[in-house]
Simulated scan of single mutants.
Amino acid sequence: MDRSSPENLILVNREPNGVAIVTINRPDSLNSLTKAMIVDLAHAFKTLDRDESVRVIILTGSGRSFCSGVDLTAAEDVFKGDVKDAETDTVVQMERCRKPIIGAIRGFAVTAGFEIALACDILVAAKGARFLDTHTRFGIFPSWGLSQKLSRIIGVNKAREVSLTATPLTAEVAERLGFVNHVVEDGELLKKSREIADAIVKNNQDMVLRYKSVINDGIKLDLGHALSLEKERGHDYYSGMTKEQFRKMQEFIAGRSSKKQSKL
């Protein structure tokens, strides 16, 4: 089933294998975002999160750019709007989304586009892709997390350089710093993203959701509290399991082990 915004600027395609592909579809403007697109993108993630047939989401852009940021001709409409309205906030809805989000990045991810990339769980970038923070260049205050998230991923000094100089972070350097998971040829971008999605789909869906949640919630805490969070959620999980569920788990593990041995 396909769903798109009325202007077809945000496309949603649900594939039969449990993967949904969300495409920012304004290629003539390098996928720059209007207020309506931001609202539609937030709605797409909120809807896909509730759709139990969807297990993984791939987010990409059409044409030669992922997202060139907010359309500055609509800047006042976007920035003076209610930035605290979580229901229409793309990044908030991405962060609330229980399903893993894979960002497939080609060309430029600029400012708001950079922040949307930061809200993904896994990033695949085409060779030549660039991440650019232009907040300081245009006098825009960050409100989607770039000032806080980037330093926690690539280190404070490198993040300062990227943001204060407004110079691009290349996909290759981003991969070396642990921000991008894979750099591939442009023609392999969606193929690689789908391979990762398929690997996730094959796993226990309940545990995928729980594992994403404990990682993403834990990184907001210091290590001691994060370890306590893991312990607490692990205790709750196992306390809620029945003897039948433990038996099925044991049978599954035993079956996997016997298959491996038969291949030796």
Rank of each mutant, 00 (worst) to 15 (best):
K259G: 12
I58G: 03
A254V: 00
L30S: 12
K248H: 13
R247W: 00
S163F: 03
E188N: 12
N13I: 02
V91T: 13
Y238W: 11
N204F: 09
A119G: 07
E161A: 13
A254H: 11
V156K: 15
D82M: 06
I38W: 00
K220I: 07
A166T: 09
V214G: 01
V92G: 00
A117D: 03
D82E: 10
V162D: 08
A171W: 04
I21M: 09
R3K: 13
D198Y: 01
S68G: 12
R96E: 11
D82H: 06
G255Q: 04
K99T: 11
I24H: 06
E87N: 14
F138W: 11
R3P: 00
V91R: 04
I122P: 02
L72N: 08
V19A: 04
A197T: 11
V70R: 01
E87D: 15
R160M: 13
N157V: 11
G18A: 12
T136H: 14
F141K: 15
H182S: 06
F114Q: 01
K191I: 09
A166K: 02
E52W: 07
Q148P: 00
S65N: 15
I154G: 03
V92E: 12
S32I: 05
L48R: 05
T34S: 15
R106N: 05
F108T: 05
L221C: 07
I219W: 03
L11A: 06
R106Y: 01
N17G: 07
G155S: 10
A226H: 09
T242K: 10
K127T: 08
G187L: 00
S143W: 15
V156P: 03
L59W: 02
G178V: 07
D133E: 03
T23M: 10
D121W: 03
K231D: 09
K202H: 12
